[in-house]
Amino acid sequence: MKRKSILSILILAITLLGCGADNKTKTIRLGHGLDVSHSVHKAMVKMGEDLQERSGGKLNLEIYPSQQLGTERECLELLQIGSLDMTKVSVGVLENFAPKMKVLGLPFLFRDRQHSFDVLDGPIGKMLLNDGEKYWLKGLGYYDAGSRSFYTMNKPIEKPSDLEGEKIRVMESVTAVNMVKALGGSPTPISWGELYTSLQQGVVDGAENNPPSFYLSRHYEVCKYYSLDEHTVLPDVLLIGTYVWNKLNEQEQKWLTESVKESVKYQRILWAEAEEEALREVQKAGVKIFRPDKSLFAEKVQGIYEGYKDDAEIYPLIKQIQETH
């Protein structure tokens, strides 16, 4: 997809400005970058249906998928100025707007999937969602985005040294860049919508993402090696601009919050099913799956943690997360 200029997106978003309907119905417009077959989009559709039912038709959710309103970064910028109502972004992108969120992007931070849920659904996760309000971004909930692993075109990544000399696409995330550097690779930030072509043209040698994203993006057509080192557990975050949130009355905020909770529960079920399907289908398409020794990768990134020892905000958070049971 051709990258839209921020100006054209802004004009479109202002034209579609949410919460501007009549007294009977308020329309909340949600833009995101995922395909309609993705579990997150399906959960959003369910959220819209639930919201309409809870509110008796007073709140309506209108969804614009597949980067129709711009990249994740662009949608966040539109939320901040009140020209878009809601969006979904990866924590990796959000850390550029709400700095405390970068703690969730640290490699091998969580012991397992349940540990990540315990943290995100508990006090730490709630604090991080609320912390974005000072940047005009209110977090509403976390969608499961599984674990991210490396996929490559020319060779499998079975140990950190296999990344040496490899150009790996990463999100626009300082933490992701530092992780790939620590593992010996050459991090290359590229937008998600441009990645397939970049792989085809050899701009990068590989990328890193979760199984459903690898499958639904059809990147498996180019990359035939998938190494499940599961280096990061980066949730997707559902956000609403504070400009829009503050225009909702207390009852409307409650309806939306309850619908988000149900949407999150539903998406996590869909996600587990999608992960199994993705791994099954990419193997059918000729992708070779590898399960390397994760401890080799975890050892190489310890320097990233050392770099936060003098950070009075992030380092205590790291300790709290590691001690959560």
Rank of each mutant, 00 (worst) to 15 (best):
I6E: 05
S8Q: 14
I11H: 07
L12H: 00
T15H: 11
A21T: 15
K24T: 14
T25N: 15
T27G: 08
H32E: 09
S37I: 14
K46G: 02
G48S: 08
G48R: 08
Q52C: 09
Q52E: 11
R54H: 01
R54N: 04
S55D: 05
S55Y: 07
L59Y: 03
L61T: 02
E62I: 12
R73C: 12
R73W: 11
E74H: 10
Q80K: 15
M86P: 01
M86R: 03
V91Y: 03
V91T: 13
A98H: 02
P99Q: 09
K100Q: 13
M101Q: 06
V103I: 14
P107I: 01
L109T: 10
L109P: 10
F110A: 03
F110Y: 09
L120D: 04
P123T: 12
I124C: 08
L129C: 09
L129A: 10
D131V: 00
E133C: 12
L137K: 05
L140Q: 02
G141E: 05
Y142E: 08
A145G: 14
S147T: 04
S147Q: 01
Y151H: 07
T152N: 00
M153D: 05
E158S: 10
E158V: 13
E158N: 14
K159Q: 04
K159A: 02
P160E: 08
D162V: 06
D162T: 06
E164A: 13
E164D: 00
V174G: 12
M179E: 06
V180Q: 09
A182F: 12
L183H: 01
P187F: 03
T188A: 07
G193A: 12
S198R: 11
Q200E: 13
Q201G: 13
G202R: 01
D205C: 06
D205A: 07
A207M: 04
F214N: 03
L216D: 07
L216M: 13
S217R: 03
H219V: 01
C223S: 11
Y225D: 00
Y226E: 07
S227E: 02
D229N: 10
E230G: 05
E230W: 05
H231L: 07
T232K: 08
V233N: 10
L234I: 14
D236A: 09
D236F: 08
I240V: 09
I240K: 02
T242F: 07
V244A: 02
N249Y: 14
E250C: 13
Q251M: 10
Q253H: 08
S259F: 01
V260S: 04
V264S: 06
Y266Q: 06
R268K: 13
I269R: 15
E273S: 13
A274W: 00
E276K: 15
R280P: 09
R280V: 12
A285N: 11
A285D: 11
E299V: 00
V301T: 10
Q302N: 14
Q302I: 05
G303R: 05
G303S: 11
I304V: 15
I304Y: 11
Y305H: 10
G307A: 13
K309A: 06
D310G: 11
Y315A: 13
Y315P: 09
K319C: 08
Q320P: 03
Q322G: 09
